Simulated scan of single mutants.
Amino acid sequence: MEVSREVSNSSIVIKENKYSPTKEFWNNWKRQKTSFWASIFILLLIIIAIIGPYITPYDPYEPNYNETLQGPSKEHFAGTDEYGRDIFSRLLVGARISLSVSFLSVLLGAIAGTILGLLSGYFGGWLDRLIMRSSDVMFAFPDLLLAIAIVAILGPGLTNVVIAVSVFSIPSFARLVRGSTLEGKETVFVEAAKSMGASHFRIMFKHIFPESLGSLIVFISMRIGTAILAASSLSFLGLGASPETPDWGAMLSLGRDYLGTSSHVVMMPGIAIFLTVLAFNLVGDGLRDVLDPKTKNE
């Protein structure tokens, strides 16, 4: 805390500049130029996902066979698909679907993985071995292959895509939180909490979990990009959204037959996926530089 004094004719005024973590984060974040603008893009994308269905210039589901496979124009910014549907309108609606699936799947995976990681690192022993060996088995399969297997068992549909993506995200979160827990439980304040009779639940979630929160936020932001790619891939393979749903992956799947004649049908949803995944990865890199204690210490 910095203290400065101003001397006046009749009194001494003491000004205190209090430390503000929020202000420090904002100042550091603004220095991450690329990540800052990527976060602005994500914010706009979230706004579009919320209001997109209400501002579409055309009905994203209604076919118009008089305007099939038209290129980008003033009437149709991104052109039309093989059914004459406006691609731009479908992209606006698809933003809500793609972001909802990715956010929800990563959130569920983060919650389950965090709980398992805390239990594994804190209690150790047979529980640690059970959780980590189970994670190793899941790590043996590529993420997308594991997701395909889960959806093949459960059946196609966006709900099952959320389950599949969240399941293959659990081991990564569990291993991340376990490492932070192993470090945190050896600290002095945790030993002090144990000596004062604090419960295991309180120690794990009150004293240990906050220490891994920065790394967890960074990993979540990067994992969302992976979830978008996985969900789009499953929809592309016909295991996710139904063909008539304006999901970005399903739009890619329908447009692949027209890649040689009407490339805009594939390019538009492909560009949307590329920019969104890139933005989340850039934000994750910036958050790592700002929030990760190890990076800050370096």
Rank of each mutant, 00 (worst) to 15 (best):
A164R: 10
L104E: 02
S120F: 02
S102Q: 09
V137A: 09
D143Y: 07
V162I: 10
S120G: 04
H76L: 06
I97Y: 03
A112Q: 12
I55V: 06
P156E: 12
T114K: 07
G52V: 01
L154Y: 02
L91P: 15
G113D: 10
A78R: 14
F103S: 04
A112W: 07
R96Y: 01
Y54A: 13
Y65L: 07
A95V: 05
L45N: 04
Y65I: 06
R90S: 05
L116Q: 05
F41D: 03
N64F: 07
L130Y: 08
N64S: 07
S166E: 05
V106N: 03
V93I: 12
I148V: 06
D143E: 15
D128Y: 01
R129D: 15
I47F: 03
F123E: 01
D128E: 08
T159R: 11
I51T: 14
G121I: 04
S39E: 10
T114C: 06
S39T: 06
F36S: 01
L130W: 15
G52S: 08
P63A: 00
I153H: 11
F141A: 10
Y58N: 06
G157Q: 05
Y54T: 11
A147W: 15
E75R: 12
L91A: 13
L116A: 08
S100T: 11
P156Q: 14
A149I: 04
R85G: 09
L127P: 02
A147T: 09
T68C: 13
A78Y: 09
V137R: 00
R96D: 02
V167S: 07
M138C: 13
A49S: 15
T159M: 12
T68M: 11
S102E: 09
L158P: 15
D143M: 13
F141C: 07
Y54M: 11
M132L: 12
R129K: 13
D128R: 06
G71M: 14
E75P: 02
H76G: 01
I131G: 10
S89D: 00
I148E: 12
L158N: 13
G71E: 15
A112T: 14
I115D: 00
G124F: 02
S166G: 08
A95M: 03
A140M: 02
S105N: 02
K74V: 15
F168P: 02
L104R: 04
Q70S: 13
R133P: 00
I97P: 00
P142Y: 01
G113M: 05
A49L: 13
G155C: 08
G124M: 04
N160Q: 09
V106L: 14
V167I: 14
L145R: 12
I163Q: 09
D81E: 00
L119G: 01
P142R: 00
L146D: 06
F139N: 00
S100K: 12
E67M: 10
S102W: 03
A49N: 10
T159N: 13
E67H: 14
S105C: 04
T56G: 06
